[in-house]
């Protein structure tokens, strides 16, 4: 079986005016289905850029990215949308829709995926309860703290039962206690439901919870450790 994700000499160059910024400079990575992988790296090392590629939000400048064996460069907009629906994405900056309440934000992804109204509501409530926001469901993002917004974003990412979860610093804005709770939730998803997880973090301790830790620096992978053993 093809790996869930395979990146080959993946490069991404942004143009800032006339100045090229090389965010990714040749990344090689294979992720099998069911893995729990943490990406560590200093700010600006290309972690978010990498995650955007994996979530089919962006296309590489050169190199190849295969998801489920399919080269995403060959997909059209419609096929990319279909792919994104199957991926749960937690953005670094939450990206909730301000005019919707927490529950409506979670329901929205399900309505995009054509889930029926009653089912949407039930599931949104369950998920928000699971992330500890039972009593904040009808609040808008501006009425929530950073950590609460982050948890809404996690609930939203889980709404369509994705088999593949991409999280950009899911614990970046929460206290250590909430961070623990979130980590436990993520670990359970991985262990009990076999969800593949790729999580970007700054935190060495949290990264240790993952089975595999990938270090990025300046647009390339500098180390790749599985269960404490370098590969």
């Amino acid at each position: 079986m093809a790996p869930l994700v395979e990146a080959i000499e993946l490069k991404k160059t942004y143009m800032l005016g006339k100045v090229p910024v090389e965010a990714l400079r040749g990344v090689n990575l294979k992720v099998e289905s069911g893995e729990f992988l943490a990406i560590l790296g200093p700010s600006g090392s290309g972690k978010s850029t990498m995650l955007n590629m994996l979530g089919a939000l962006d296309k590489p400048t050169s190199g190849k990215l295969l998801i489920d064996g399919i080269d995403i460069a060959t997909l059209n907009d419609n096929q990319l949308s279909d792919l994104r629906r199957r991926v749960g994405f937690v953005f670094q900056f939450f990206n909730l829709i301000p005019r919707f309440t927490a529950r409506e934000n979670v329901e929205l992804v399900m309505s995009i995926a054509d889930v029926g109204k009653a089912e949407r509501r039930k599931r949104a409530e369950e998920l928000l309860e699971a992330v500890g926001l039972k009593d904040r469901m009808n609040h808008k993002p501006t009425e929530l703290s950073g950590g609460q917004q982050q948890r809404v974003a996690i609930a939203r990412a889980l709404a369509n039962n994705p088999k593949f979860l991409l999280m950009d610093e899911p614990t970046g804005n929460v206290d250590s206690k909430t961070a623990r709770e979130i980590m436990n939730l993520i670990k359970r998803l991985n262990e009990e439901r076999g969800v593949t997880i790729i999580m970007v973090t700054h935190d060495q301790h949290l990264a240790r919870e993952a089975k595999r830790v990938v270090q990025m620096f300046d647009g390339v992978i500098t180390s790749d450790v599985v269960n404490g053993e370098p590969t």
Partner: peptide
């Protein structure tokens, strides 16, 4: 713009 970015990142089709 940002809202549209979110919608598309969540898998909304261009047509939608």
């Amino acid at each position: 713009t940002r809202e549209i970015g979110i919608l598309k990142a969540l898998g909304m089709k261009n047509r939608t």
